Simulated scan of single mutants.
Amino acid sequence: MVRTPLDWPVLRQLRGPDVLGRGPAARSRDTEELTPRTKTADRVVGSVCPYCAVGCAQRVFVKDEKVVQIEGDPDSPVNRGRLCPKGSASKNLVTSPLRQQTIRYRAPYATEWQELDLGTAMEMVADRVVKARNDTWQDIDEKNRRVRRTLGIASLGGATLDNEENYLIKKLFTAMGAIQIENQARI
């Protein structure tokens, strides 16, 4: 593409209807040819920002099963389409090549770490939760009262969880019989 002095923004501004240079006169051909990533997305998925307890809604734009953009959801009464700097950087949290894809695990008494895939690590956690619950289950306490609980499992939530996540965690741990359920915000 050959560029001439007539393409200069100041000349376009003086020759055309955009004398203040706030519209088409200020835009280059390259800018006009750009297509937003959100326009070419296959689908949009609703999500919640993972960083703090505010729970800002996000729209996740997906193309070819890959995240191409994350923006604030303008329909949300919480953030009305706006995100803080950390929330705006959510895309990098999911798509960064530096993101860990495996779990580092050191077996008891081992001196070396080993890499595990996420599925294997989740199975190990689930097996240990079930075992701890079964090993420490109490139907009746020392005063012969029916308690149906376990003291072998506890939960300590963090301030990065929103109300919905805390609600689901509370329901999960209560259903498992745990009674020691706390949140860092109360400590």
Rank of each mutant, 00 (worst) to 15 (best):
T136K: 04
E165G: 06
D73H: 03
P97D: 14
E115L: 04
L6A: 10
Y51L: 03
G55C: 13
K66W: 12
E142Y: 09
D30K: 13
A159D: 12
I70S: 00
R149H: 02
N163G: 09
A57R: 02
I181G: 03
K39Y: 05
L118Y: 07
A110W: 06
S28Q: 10
L98K: 10
C84F: 02
E165A: 14
R149G: 06
P9E: 03
C56G: 07
N134C: 09
W113S: 00
V19R: 12
P17L: 10
L118R: 01
S96D: 09
L156N: 11
R145K: 15
I103H: 08
M124L: 15
G158L: 09
R146I: 00
L161K: 06
K63V: 08
V60A: 05
L11Y: 15
S76V: 01
A178V: 06
G152M: 07
A121C: 11
D139L: 15
T35P: 12
P50R: 04
W8A: 14
R82E: 02
T35Q: 15
W113D: 01
F173E: 02
C52F: 05
T150K: 00
T35V: 15
Q180S: 10
P85Y: 07
L83G: 04
D141Q: 11
Y105L: 13
V68T: 00
V10E: 15
I153P: 01
E112I: 04
A89C: 13
K66P: 06
V44I: 11
R106Q: 11
C49H: 03
G16I: 05
R104C: 08
R145A: 14
D7H: 02
V60G: 00
E112Q: 02
R148E: 12
D127I: 15
V60Q: 04
R22M: 11
P77N: 08
G55A: 12
Q138S: 03
A89I: 06
R15L: 11
L11A: 14
L116P: 01
Y109H: 09
G177W: 01
F61Y: 04
R29G: 05
C49F: 09
V78A: 11
K63S: 13
E65W: 08
G46R: 07
L6S: 12
P85A: 14
P5G: 11
V62D: 03
L14E: 09
R59W: 12
L20G: 08
E115W: 02
R99D: 12
E165I: 08
R43C: 09
A26R: 02
A175L: 15
V19T: 08
Q69D: 12
P108Q: 09
A121P: 03
L156W: 11
D141F: 08
Y51D: 04
I153L: 05
Q69T: 01
R3Y: 11
K86E: 05
S96M: 06
S76D: 12
K131R: 13
N134R: 10
